[in-house]
């Protein structure tokens, strides 16, 4: 079946095998391979995408339900040489090691900072509590979110 969505601000028609096909598989099949598979059980956050601005684990999200909704994937955040401030902050903070959890982390970061531009450490940890990382120990990821908040604040004051 076909469903109409908006992905990264562009109208997009998705071919879906059936209503309950995981959104993860649908997105990857349509070229959005920045969304990663980690556990297929909603536990690791590698597959996180934003649906109407809120993070969900796309591996357990029925694709049919995305009909009429706005989806944001990592591809919608920035591209090489045109990084957005969150992506830039992750790089500058040393928050990216293998990079496999990174798209999910960045999307949850975006969702947080969109709503809460000056989060406390506790709020940052809560926003990322569903994103598992085995490489970094999370320390520099939290640094990256704080740096991104700073950068975003600066640019909004201009």
């Amino acid at each position: 079946m076909k469903i109409e969505t908006t992905i990264n601000n562009q109208k997009k028609e998705l071919n879906v095998k059936n209503y309950t096909e995981p959104l993860l598989d649908v997105l990857r099949r349509h070229g959005y391979v920045g969304t990663k598979e980690g556990c297929r059980s909603g536990q690791c956050g590698a597959c996180v995408v934003l649906v109407n601005g809120l993070p969900v684990n796309s591996c357990i999200y029925p694709a049919g339900r995305a009909s009429g909704k706005k989806i944001t994937t990592i591809e919608g955040i920035g591209i090489p040489n045109k990084l957005d401030k969150i992506q830039q902050s992750y790089l500058e903070s040393g928050a990216v090691q293998c990079g496999y959890c990174t798209p999910g982390m960045i999307l949850c970061t975006k969702s947080l900072l969109d709503k809460n531009p000056a989060p406390t450490d506790e709020e940052i940890k809560l926003a990322l509590d569903g994103n598992l990382c085995r490489c970094t120990g999370y320390v520099k990821i939290i640094d990256a979110v704080k740096l991104a908040a700073k950068k975003l604040k600066k640019s909004s004051h201009r």
Binding site: Y32, V33, G78, P80, L83, G94, V96
Partner: peptide
Amino acid sequence: KSKIKVDGQALVTGQPVFVGD
């Protein structure tokens, strides 16, 4: 120096760089 990773841009933008891609 804490140079930015040479593969960093590809990773933060979700480029198809893993086996599954």
